[in-house]
Amino acid sequence: MTATTTVVEGAPAGQAAGRRQGRAGPGPWRSRLYRWDVRCSPYAFVAPFFLFFAAFGLFPLLYTGWASLHRVELTSPGRMEWAGLHNYARLLGNDFFWNALRNTFTIGVLSTVPQLLMALGLAHLLHYRLRAATFWRVALLTPYATSVAAATLVFVLLYGRDYGMVNWALDAAGIGPVDWQNGTWSSRCAVSSIVVWRWTGYNALIYLAAMQAVPDELYESAALDGASRLAQFRHITVPALRPTILFTIVVSTIGATQLFGEPLLFGGAGGQKGGAAHQFQTLGLYLYEQGWFNFHLGRACAVAWTMFLILLLIAAAGGLIARRLRKEG
């Protein structure tokens, strides 16, 4: 690179040529090299990612799309039998699919809404000047470091019907025991609580960061205007956090749509069914059950692609809302 240091006339924009060794003024060769570099480097930058992506992301995606149009069984995945849109048509008339879709939505709301609201509240509290500020932040973040497997293991024990700690406490408080696995809503709440537990602290920190970026003068002037603290929170903090809130909503929604590990492990043996009445079977579990327990890979792939399309729709809706918000802002 340092080979040609000769300064040559007619360098484009003629700037700073040879100001430092290694950044020699472009000669004809150099300048061609330079142009080539400008034109091609973007591709070089995205190439590593997209190469891997092609092998480990795109190929599986297209393969499953192709497989979703076939009858394929896990017992012999090599044997494919063209089925057209049969797998998709079957989904539309399948109660289990709609049940899973509804559950995914319900559990998604149950886990996302309290999680983000609590995170917002916590961020507000963390925003005060606190003693041992780092301690509070780290402590609230620890659940995030716990794996789904480890977390669910503990929660299953805590939520045990006959000998669990939660029911023991409820009993002590005079409230009858709850069947956390077999109740329709109690099981959904229990699954959601695992998600909420793991992610609230993390989101609180993201909100806190956004809050700290809000200029103090805004609060000062509002305070001088006599706005109450609550009013300040509603009229300064929340609007300033809008993009961040939107971001967390999008990420949580994606997570909620793909919810899998928590309900699977919460259900114990046969967890893929999401309870005896499929009361907490999410789309992710339904896919898993179809593909890995009933061995209908083709149909599982159709579920996956349907999930994918649903998420694209949600993302498009989110994008529209974001644009609307930006215009208003």
Binding site: H124, L125, Y128, A139, T142, T200, D225, F233
Partner: peptide, 30 residues
């Protein structure tokens, strides 16, 4: 001036109480 929500404000006992509650909730399962 009305109380400010900025970072200058010291947290009161209530703030600490709520934070303690949530911290306990975060740490207890572990």
């Amino acid at each position: 001036p009305a109380p400010r929500a900025g970072r200058q404000l010291h947290g009161g006992p209530l703030v600490y109480a709520v934070l303690t509650l949530f911290t306990a909730g975060s740490l207890l399962p572990l």
